[in-house]
Write a protein that binds this DNA or RNA. Structure first.
Lengths: 136, 136
DNA sequence: ACTAAACTATACTATCTGAGTATATATTTA
DNA sequence: TAAATATATACTCAGATAGTATAGTTTAGT
């Protein structure tokens, strides 16, 4: 029931870019130093963000990263899913295998967890990095 | 971002007891068999539930388990916390150590995760096992 | 063309957590 | 006293977490 450390770092990296001048390219080194994230690990995380289309990267000597769209269009959910994959409270909510034990498709635990899971997803989707940058 | 398997089993065990006659003592063996939970593992989980005051145990030959209070007074949150400890989306929400990195007590990531965490807690606290037993 | 500074890609590793098992002990009823 | 139950502690094994290492590719500037 906890987000992992990579997601936490990803939040801070995206927030850092959100706080930079729009379109400005920031190096991983800079982000790592300022946000106290191990450089190598950050580079790996950044690639997830690039793949997800949240961040764009520029290679070469003057390379680095910038947001691929305005901070207001990037939600916490976007980042969580980019780094961790889909949010799920219980493995049986993705993999039917685990739920056919007794109740098949009418498992009440399954049902109620799905409702709660959706609430979590809504909460994460409601918050974006423009809002977050305001608080910083 | 996922509840663990022990919590899933705990939900099913409590639900099982909620579906039995009030005050009826059910053995771990019976619960394990019906809910398809490994007996040894279930016994361990049941002790967490007993410690948390959700379930009471009876020792000896005619022993077993029963709910310590009506199903309507047992929330999903009660069970989650009994098995996993407090709900926290990020380690920095419990352990200040992790959050003094840059922002000290005004970390915006920290702040927004706390809001979301509270929403999760509310959702879990809102649902009880009487409601759940209805669906079964 | 070469070099340095950046990102990319894949593989590796150490530690921790999750999920469950094993063994011995204590309690209670028949 | 035996059998069936729960309690307590310790152990194990696989997979996930949180990184690190090595090699490669791209680009700006000389």
């Amino acid at each position: 029931m906890q987000l992992n450390q990579a997601t936490d770092y990803a939040f801070r990296a995206v927030l850092h870019l959100a706080g930079s001048a729009p379109g400005e390219v920031v190096t991983a080194q800079e982000i790592a130093r300022r946000e106290k994230v191990p450089l190598r690990f950050l580079l790996k995380i950044m690639r997830s963000l690039v793949e997800a289309g949240i961040v764009k990267s520029v290679r070469g000597v003057t390379g680095g990263y910038a947001l691929a769209r305005p901070p207001g269009k990037i939600t916490l959910l976007d980042v969580v899913e980019a780094v961790e994959g889909p949010v799920r409270l219980n493995r049986c909510l993705i993999d039917q295998e685990y739920c056919t034990k007794r109740w098949a498709n009418r498992c009440p635990v399954h049902q109620i967890l799905e409702v709660i899971q959706n609430a979590v997803i809504q909460e994460l989707a409601r918050r974006n990095f423009a809002e977050l940058a305001q608080k910083a």
